[in-house]
């Protein structure tokens, strides 16, 4: 029977919202599902993990060095745990998971499956390649273990458990490296919904033409209680910070409703929004590729159309 270890990504006592989606991917395989939380004090995050439906046990590993979730610090601990009989090690396809998990795979001597978008069985998965323009089905060797990241845009979050799973505090006798030191995190503080979990997202592109003009995007987003995203062009032009970038090299999102405003729709951007339920495009160029994927397209000047839209929703 499968025994799945999920890395319970957390920051400042809050479990990453993607973990409930990873649990759902693991449920498609079945068997025992354990979530492991690494932190200086992981009590709060462990309790949140224990409350997710499908989780059978939470392992809490408190250690001062785990404070910032550095890959080189967490990796030897996961490798030690994985060797205690896990058939699968899963992480969310976040920057944390992508940074960490290939290290784990290499130490275990296995190829990693990146960005699983569908689970067919314990070792059979679909994943996107070529910026999502092709879907690859792979069969991973079952031995010694399957190591994979889960594409969050492809899975719904598991619900709340009827009864919380047991939390087990463990200590691992592992020597940790000192060659990597955390200096600082410059976080973008935002009151808006987080891009990767927002049900509605409004994104702006190069056509906004300035950082100031982005205010019409924020304003529409606030009216719709939506997250705000951007194309690479808007980020590179300095209109918005890079963590707002949606696309192959930014965030992959799957909201119910996506507004692409002043975004032409390059392959790399489309890779990030293909799974949005409904796509609305507003662009002055009727030939823009975004209209090929949009469910609703509106051709015209965004500077008049967006404020009008805001006033009418």
């Amino acid at each position: 029977m499968s025994k799945i270890l999920i890395i319970g990504q957390q920051a400042e006592g809050k479990l990453n919202s993607g973990i409930a989606k990873v649990v759902n991917a693991a449920k498609a395989i079945g068997g025992e599902i354990h979530v492991v939380v690494f932190a200086a004090d992981g009590s709060a995050a462990a309790a949140q993990a224990a409350a997710i439906d499908g989780v059978t046990k939470v392992i809490q590993i408190d250690r001062a060095e785990n404070d910032h979730g550095l890959a080189v610090i967490v990796e030897p601990q996961i490798v030690a745990l994985a060797k205690t009989g896990y058939s699968h090690v899963f992480a969310a396809g976040t920057t944390f998971g992508k940074d960490l998990l290939p290290r784990v795979a290499a130490k275990l001597g296995v190829q990693q499956v990146s960005d699983i978008m569908a689970v067919h069985g314990a070792t059979s998965f679909d994943r996107p390649i070529y910026a999502g323009n092709a879907i690859l089905t792979v069969e991973a060797p079952a031995e010694p273990c399957v190591v994979a990241t889960i594409r969050l845009a492809s899975f719904q979050a598991a619900g709340d458990a009827a009864a919380a799973a047991p939390i087990e505090k463990q200590t691992l006798d592992v020597t940790l490296p000192t060659h990597t030191r955390f200096v600082k995190l410059e976080a973008q503080k935002s009151e808006r919904p987080e891009l990767q979990s927002a049900t509605r997202v409004v994104s702006g592109g190069r056509a906004l033409a300035s950082s100031e003009n982005f205010s019409i995007i924020y304003s529409l987003a606030d009216k719709l209680k939506a997250g705000v995203g951007a194309s690479r062009a808007a980020v590179d032009s300095g209109y918005v910070p890079n963590d707002m970038q949606v696309g192959q090299t930014g965030k992959i999102i799957a909201p119910e409703l996506y507004f692409a405003i002043g975004i032409s729709g390059a392959i790399q951007h489309l890779a990030g929004i293909k799974d949005a339920r409904t796509i609305v495009a507003i662009n002055k160029d009727p030939e823009a590729p975004i209209f090929e994927v949009a469910d609703y397209g509106l051709v015209g000047d965004l500077f008049t159309l967006v404020p009008e839209l805001e006033s009418k929703v």
Binding site: V110, P128, A134, L136, T137, I279
Partner: peptide, 20 residues
């Protein structure tokens, strides 16, 4: 190292045509 076996490569499902 042991490889992941490539079973198949497929085209992703197309989105249905939208309206202007």
């Amino acid at each position: 190292a042991a490889a992941l076996k490539r079973v198949k490569v497929a085209t992703p499902p197309k989105r249905s045509k939208g309206v202007m």
